[in-house]
């Protein structure tokens, strides 16, 4: 996928556990894991807002666009 989620990096730099973020934003650990591993199909603005608020970051810090290599 062309979108890379840096949730694990953001959590590590803030020394925050996934369970703690889960409690703060009110999203289950399972769903946050789906987001962290890049398996999510879509992210709600409300979820993004809550994560950015708790991690004190911008959406661009969490999501990076890296184009896929064209298949030969």
């Amino acid at each position: 996928m062309a979108l890379i989620i840096h949730l694990d990096v953001m959590l590590a730099t803030r020394k925050m556990k996934l369970s703690e973020l889960s409690e703060r934003v009110g999203i289950t650990i399972a769903n946050l894991s789906v987001l962290k591993t890049g398996k999510a199909k879509a992210v709600r603005f409300s979820t993004l807002e809550a994560i950015c608020r708790e991690l004190d970051c911008q959406p661009g810090d969490l999501i990076e666009y890296k184009p896929d290599k064209p298949s030969e």
């Binding site: 999203i27 769903n31 946050l32 987001l35 999510a40 199909k41 879509a42 992210v43 709600r44 979820t47």
Partner: peptide, 8 residues
Amino acid sequence: REEADMTI
């Protein structure tokens, strides 16, 4: 349904 389930 799958998309809805995978929307966080």
